[in-house]
Amino acid sequence: MIRLRARSVAALTLASVFGLAAFCWPLIISPASGLAHGADAPWVFALMLPLILAVVLAEISEGGLDAKAVAMLGVLSACGAAVRPLGAGTAGIETVFFLLILGGRVFGPGFGFVLGATTLFTSALLTGGVGPWLPYQMLAAAWFGLGAGLLPRRVRGWQEPVMLAGYGALASLLYGLLMNLSFWPFGTGAGSSSLSYVAGDPILDNLVRLLGFMLATSMGWDAGRALTTGILILVTSAVILRVLRRAAHRARFTR
């Protein structure tokens, strides 16, 4: 539905490289770097990421967001934002990803990327949850919408829900890992506990600490999120895919 031009693909790739660095910097930063000292680094990244997101979203929308795509994005973001509070507060039940993944599957990778960003943004505005975590969440959700759009198109029939559920569970686990990576330097400042990142340590040592941080804080949530996303997709995907494809057909959306 949203055509990705070569230019948009290039911008998307560069922005993703930058975004990946914004997530993984505690693992790769060298002790000689000016950012390695003091507590400024997490805030610097939290300020840079919104601009990168703005640039790449503007680039994609210039490539072709027509009225149908805007309306569909708005309505699906609203659905995602409306079902998100259903799971909040209950450990590990995450209800936003399955819609995101099914939307990306039906309407393609470009739409999935923008849908991931707008869903999380709408939800944050509705619940008053705008903070330094929002750009990270938007980028990670956008990646997973994009990935859902890139899954092989030939897989249909009973294999499709299984593939999507597997992708959803994997993506949810990765989302949890990325969120932990972004929260790690905020949650335990450098040197404040034995699970904090150490700038310039071998990646493996920092990874062990990150794993410890994950086990200590959010493993239950992440596993629950992967499980609920997978089950929700298995149960609802047949019906929702049909409804979404009908809408896409009625609007004669071109891919």
Partner: peptide
């Protein structure tokens, strides 16, 4: 430059 995206979010805020 983010006009389309912000319209989509506005639609989302209204529809929810």
């Amino acid at each position: 430059a983010l006009y389309e995206v912000s319209v989509a979010v506005t639609v989302g805020l209204t529809v929810a």
